[in-house]
Design a protein around this nucleic acid. Structure first.
Length: 486
RNA sequence: GGUCGGAUGGCCGAGUGGCUAGGCUGAGGUCUGCAAAACCUCCUACAGCGGUUCGAAUCCGCUUCCGACCUCCA
């Protein structure tokens, strides 16, 4: 068995054995959403991926402090540091308080996460709740000579930073290439260098969101809140920092620069980045207009969808691809996952009813080992699921009587399925019918059995077909008739 | 244009220098009054062209195509 957990680290571009700084404690920071609009499915994929990582680390016995921020200020319309704060802009359009926008989309985000059965993080701090920390950090960066003030705004001096440190360490780019390829953004001449970014932005009087600072009224730049909050809750150096891949070149690169400029320490040992969800091969994004909202997916109310899919089917679909691969979104792929998910869950129900024998025809311990090996290899959920499907085959074969399993192995297998399906993958069984419905169906099964005994097949078929129409499927077997919801 | 990453069977998706996942679909079979489910078997793929090697889909080079980032984006 592969004992150790290996994680692909963006910093080294290779898999590394995971070693916690202070075991059994693990600090993990994940960049959360900017709450100016609904989260779409691509956003969800990232948070579901980190939910799995959080769950697996916890399952292994780590005490994880999982910090995921809510960015509710500072995220500008463009990186020219000229535009308006995204939330401020939305608030003006809707003629509401910025905090109403923030509240609406924060609540919406949490609801969606709950529907996907993603565990809430240990701490969910907000940018507006940490203005003081951000001002303090900015002050320190000025003091350390990595930032400069222009007309009440503070900018980070990237070229100066890069003389002492490696600005492109995370993205793998060198600064000359970046300088040569930076597009002319225009309208921005306060900054000394093209790559410089704002730490603190002077607010115009009409700005809705602004706070007092040593440099006058203003608001913090995007990137800064994550540096400030990770530092506050996880310390200057912690174990894991994550987010979507699209954050690597700018947001995370700048975060690292800020933390180093602030205290000289690289914030995180392992940088984990999740890949994009695509639609017809293209990244799902708000600006491309190809994004799906979770409720559109659940109801099927979207031009690209033939039908709706349950949140657990979507979760299972996402787990069938590795988090570092792009995943393409289509009806066909969702259909396949839906069937696979139902088969998996049906097998779990069967598993609970199996009767043990004196010997096992399959090596359950090897199966278990394979499942853990898969997860230990950079959280390889698709391989782990493939192994579990081998378990499904065993379960169904034992039920059919073509294979057998000992009591010890049965316990191992049951634990394995429970741990993986529910604790680690975070799946939920679809709500089974209430007891009363179950009793009524059992009664109908009895009546149908009498009819069958009398060879009154028109009655027995009618019962089966009508039940199927309203969503309950009967399955005859040697042990009797069972039923499932469709 | 620059940087980086991909191209896997009908579809989705793992993986990897020799033992060639898995799900879905399709075909056949077993079971069954018939269905459904389940189980068994089959359809055996790695973009193209070279090279390294006893052996490559896996390593190297070139070509074609696709994507991401360089503008806000998980």
């Amino acid at each position: 068995m592969q004992q150790s957990l290996n994680i692909y680290n963006t910093l080294s571009r290779s898999k590394e054995e995971f070693k916690a700084i202070n075991p059994p404690f693990v600090g993990m920071y994940v960049c959360g959403p900017t709450v100016y609009s609904d989260v779409h499915l691509g956003n969800c994929r990232t948070f579901i991926s980190f939910d799995i990582i959080y769950r697996y680390l916890s399952h292994l016995g780590y005490k994880v402090r999982y910090v995921r921020n809510i960015t509710d200020a500072g995220h500008l319309e463009s990186d020219a540091d000229e535009g308006e704060d995204k939330i401020s802009k939305k608030a003006k359009l809707a003629q509401v308080e910025p905090m109403e926008i923030v509240q609406k989309y924060t609540v919406g985000f949490r609801q969606v996460m709950e529907v996907f059965n993603a565990l809430p993080p240990s701490i969910e701090p907000t940018a507006t709740g940490h203005i003081i920390e951000q001002i303090e950090m900015t002050r320190k960066m000025l003091e350390n000579g990595f930032a400069y003030e222009v007309n009440g705004s503070i900018y980070f001096d990237v070229e100066k930073y890069n003389k002492e440190k490696n600005y492109g360490a995370l993205s793998g780019r060198n600064i000359e290439d970046l300088l040569n390829n930076t597009r002319e953004l225009g309208g921005q001449d306060e900054k000394r260098g093209q790559l410089d970014f704002a730490l603190w932005i002077k607010a115009k009087p009409e700005h809705l969101m602004q706070w007092p600072s040593p440099w006058g009224m203003g608001f913090p730049g995007w990137h800064l809140e994550c540096s400030a909050m990770s530092n506050k809750y996880l310390g200057a150096q912690f174990d894991i920092h994550g987010g979507g891949m699209d954050l690597i070149p700018t947001h995370h690169t700048n975060e690292i620069a800020q933390n180093i400029a602030f205290c000289g320490k690289h914030p995180a040992n392992y940088w984990i980045h999740t890949n994009m969800l695509t639609v017809n091969g293209q990244k799902m994004s708000k600006s491309l207009g190809n994004s799906f909202l979770p409720h559109e997916l659940f109801t099927g109310d979207h031009p690209l969808l033939d039908k709706g899919y349950g949140p657990m089917v979507v979760r299972f679909f996402m787990l069938q691809a590795h988090y570092r691969s792009t995943l393409d979104f289509s009806n066909e792929a969702l259909d396949a996952s839906e069937k696979g998910f139902k088969r998996m869950m049906a097998a779990y129900d069967v598993l609970k009813q199996l009767t043990p024998s004196d010997s096992s025809t399959s090596d359950i311990n090897v199966l278990k080992e394979r499942c853990y090996n898969a997860m230990n290899d950079d959280f390889n959920t698709p391989v782990a699921i493939a192994e579990l499907f081998e378990g499904v085959r065993i379960i169904n074969s034992v039920k059919a009587g073509t294979e057998s399993i000992t009591e010890t192995d049965l316990i191992t297998l049951t634990d394995l399925f429970q741990h993986f399906l529910f604790d680690i993958f975070g799946l939920l069984t679809e709500e089974h019918a209430t007891n009363n419905v179950g009793k009524v169906i059992d009664l109908l099964i009895d009546i149908r059995n009498s009819a069958k005994a009398n060879k009154d097949y028109s009655t027995s078929d009618a019962i089966r077909n009508k039940l199927l129409e309203i969503g309950y499927q009967l399955k005859d077997s040697k042990e009797g008739t069972s039923w499932t919801t469709v």
